[in-house]
Nucleic acid binder design. Structure first.
Lengths: 339, 339
DNA sequence: CTGAAAGCGCTTACAG
DNA sequence: CTGAAAGCGCTTACAG
């Protein structure tokens, strides 16, 4: 005497339901729905119709388990409170979603440890791909990545040819905006920075190179503050620089939020910008074109970075070849009223 | 003659590996790892040790498939480019992550259709819970939600008692800030808005009630623009209002980014704030305390909303009772230099 | 081009 | 308190 089958029905419309409604086997239904060739066109449309009629939605968990892969792409960014990364994420999502991938967002707060923790967790989900900001990570993170074999593209910065990356040279950009200030006749140029993450320090390096090349290596003034970047901090630093170095005739802030804060502090203190001191920022964030005076800055093409990185990752996930491991999207100096 | 078993090994350390290493059955290992009572303490530590030694990471897909539930919580917000929602997300994530849940972020761009699409997709993943912004959604979305039975908490706004929500009265907040301007002696108060989403329109309603109550119902001036909110648009609207209604002595902008743009336009146009026209915003976004003059606004406690909503959802997901379906976290009027 | 069988890695539902 | 069996819903690998 056999007992009745123990069922654990979830009420879900399954592939088997679709298959029997269409009068084919589950495998054929699966292949038809996934658009695999080698299925008769007539069958495909019959399966498609049955799926539509029944309101079939594939179960991602079952799919992931059976195929040992998923349609998740994890994107790790340092912060969400900087619009830069939001723009990046929107672009990534906009490119990945139509291709059927789901974007998982992780925030590292510029911490190697948090990144490692997130990586471990996301990797357990067998993501189809990974998008990481920059190259600064722990050895353990690197090992996890290598062991996972998950395709990975790095954002914002340019890496060695053995790694995939889409970005631009942060150092060159820092050099260019400094050269712009030099070309405007400024000599006592201060570099003012917060956060001090690796990309900020590369901009610092660019600043140093430009000053050196102009024979002003000795005149370098750097105000480096490890706190997180904000308009309020920008105002504070603006004052500090002027107090410590009244001779300063220009300030290059490592990020626009600092620069905007600096510009507002200048208004408050009635420091004439750009007459007394020119001001430049970095990233061209929202509002920079609205300031008084409008802010000279470096426009960083994060939307392009997001789109191109997603496209590269899509290729890698499909096992296709990518033309080049590194895409340099460049940057541009936007000259406005503050310099 | 039986053929060899067909294996599809993924190289993963599985629960079975842990179990055999610990000398117990997979079920016992599973229970031990999940911290279920009814497992001998000695066994628990043996299993734990084996898991640690082998570097076992549970497979979320297998877990989701077997248990018909997941550890995903989907959060749908209108935008990421408004810091308000970023703060909200950080708070939600901060409360959910330690509890073992993974936050999936979806962006609706204030579109009912996009929300419906996202909902359909996320629901296929059997999320453990859902966090939605506001109450404005399509009938199809409502039906999907109801049919899914997934616990759901609504953010930012207060709903009917049959729905779970954490927020505050947008209308009351709009009324309060208008009353503040009235108390300062302003009479020709303009309401200036963009985006025009439901919460903005509730603030408009609060403005109207306050004006009505002050006997100024006829003096209402409303500048409603459906474009998305930005500092640049705030500047444009500031000018438009002044041109169309030179008698205006105060402007209540529905969001701080607009108000900041208005303040900068005032500087540009040399309109004296607050002497000639007072300015108020909404949300107390980054930079509002840095403007010249500093911006009077409504501080909205989005971090509290995120934390409380996550806590409520956690209870619902565990099947626990919640004290009340609605939590009103309130708001406060922050009076600064612009009014 | 199509399908019967087996398996992915876990947990539920029954037993004892 | 512990376990053998079955099942979750899909896809891979092998046949034909």
């Amino acid at each position: 005497m056999s007992s009745p089958p123990r069922r654990r029905a979830t009420g879900r419309v399954t592939l088997a339901d679709v298959a029997s409604a269409a009068g084919v086997s589950p495998i054929t239904a699966s292949r038809a729905l996934r658009g695999q060739r080698s299925v008769d066109a007539a069958l495909v449309s019959r399966v498609q119709a049955a799926a539509d009629r029944l309101g079939y939605v594939p179960d991602p968990a079952a799919r992931a388990l059976a195929s040992a892969r998923s349609w998740h792409v994890a994107v790790l960014v340092p912060l969400l409170s900087n619009n830069l990364f939001v723009d990046l994420l929107e672009a990534v999502h906009g490119a990945l979603w139509p291709a059927g991938y789901q974007t998982l967002i992780g925030v590292t707060h510029y911490s190697r440890q948090e990144e490692e923790h997130l990586l471990r967790s996301y990797l357990a989900h067998r993501p189809a791909g990974l998008l990481l900001t920059g190259f600064d990570r722990s050895d353990a993170s690197r090992a996890l990545l290598a062991a996972s074999g998950v395709p990975c593209v790095h954002l914002m910065d340019l890496g060695a040819p053995d790694q995939h990356s889409v970005g631009f040279s942060q150092a060159d950009a820092g050099r260019s905006i400094t050269e712009h200030l030099l070309a405007r006749g400024r000599r006592r140029i201060a570099f003012v920075a917060a956060q001090l993450d690796p990309r900020v320090m590369q901009r610092a390096e660019g600043y140093r190179r430009a000053m050196q090349a102009a024979g002003l290596g000795d005149a370098r003034i750097e105000m480096l503050n490890p706190e997180s970047s904000s308009m309020a901090l920008g105002g504070v630093l603006f004052e500090q620089v002027l107090r410590a170095h009244p001779e300063v005739d220009a300030m290059f802030f490592c990020n626009d939020d600092l620069a905007q804060g600096g510009l507002l502090a200048a208004l408050r203190l009635k420091v004439d910008v750009p007459q007394q001191v020119a001001v430049a920022g970095f990233n061209d964030l929202a509002g920079s074109d609205q300031m008084l005076p409008t802010l000279t800055t470096v426009r960083t093409p994060r939307t392009v970075i997001g789109t191109e990185a997603a496209a590269m990752l899509l290729k890698l996930m499909r096992g296709e070849a990518v033309p080049a491991p590194t895409i340099d999207v460049g940057y541009s100096v936007v000259v406005r009223g503050s310099s």
